[in-house]
Amino acid sequence: MQIQTKAVNGVLTLSLDEKRLDSKLAVGFKDKVGELIASGNRLIVFNLSAVDFIDSSGIGCLVTCLKLMGPKGKITIWGLKPPVESMFKLTRMDRVFTLCSTEEQALQAVNS
């Protein structure tokens, strides 16, 4: 699994360089992000602009990450392609995560 990470001013930016966030990837993704959360990260910006497809396992592992962070945690997500954004809406997770068009907006939102 290809994930690029960058930490700037207390915000962890995480770019998933995969075309699919699905049941094949979900466990590894959860483990990897879980380690980053365990090491103290509480503000995370996900760049999903490379992702063409997400299934409910992928949505579920993002929820797991949010729960792992506890009450001080915040996740914003940017770069959603239409089918990926549709899945957030279908599962009503667009009400849980802040979805942004650009990295700049996502960074602003996670710090607000």
Partner: peptide
């Protein structure tokens, strides 16, 4: 804490 992680 009560968000569903599956069942969608």
């Amino acid at each position: 804490d009560c968000l569903p992680e599956g069942g969608f």
